[in-house]
Amino acid sequence: MIIMLENKVKKREKHLFRKCLIGAIVALSIGMIAFPLYWMLISSLKPSTELFASPPTIFPKSISLEWYKKAFQNSMVLTYFGNSFIVSSITTVVVTIVATFGAYGLTRFRFVGRKIITVSSLAAYCIPPIMLMVPLYRVVSKLRLISSLLGVIIGHLALTLPFAIWLLISFFKSIPREIEESALVNGASEFTVFRKIAIPLCAPGILSTAILVFILSWNEYLLASVMVSQDSMKTLTVGLANYISNVQIDWGIVMALGTATTIPIVLMFSLIQKYFVEGLTAGAIKG
């Protein structure tokens, strides 16, 4: 009896200890993620006297919007933001459609060169983007697209398509073929099967792929920096990176712009992350 009680106490202690441990891990990971973002936010709110204080103050003594005023006074941030949105959206739509067709074609049909295309789409994934930079620029300028967002979009197509194809191939592979085959036997055309059965079954996977492509395109810097020269055509990453060129880093302004660019994308993602998670966990990527 006593031993049992002791065991119970021990178990409870063990349970409590584990709870504390998990609590600590949760707190630590939240802290690690939140701190850099918090620091960017409060740095953007500190007036210049406090911003350059040493040691830095963890909770700002006073809050001012002077950096935001300066940042938005003359800057093109809204334009950059719009550009990024356009580039990422168009890239996402095009890549998702092309890759869905492509991946379905590659997984469900047999034809000459199928294997080669499959393999080379993955091989394309490990080509350094920097290697594509100069030749892609030539392609884009030959097409006379250098002063439009289409140049950046083309660059981002090259960067994101291989990954999207690869992801979607594994999504389509994870769907049992039997359903489609029975529909075919029942006289449905291949395209109807694709449209009415395969796509709905794979929708979560397609949606997550789309979100991934959007994020990749939104964050890309290298190609976007080369493909346009007009200020009014710069994407957010490029526009912001210009502010940290070492000629003059105005930390307050830079922190304000950093905050202003990070918050919208985080909010947007928070709204749709449920579908992202659903899709990615729907059973793909098992190797």
Partner: peptide, 19 residues
């Protein structure tokens, strides 16, 4: 505005394509 830090990649690529 073309910042000094990526000026040379900009000029080189623009020169290549006549832009």
């Amino acid at each position: 505005p073309v910042p000094l830090t990526d000026l040379y990649s900009k000029m080189a690529t623009a020169k290549e394509s006549g832009t």
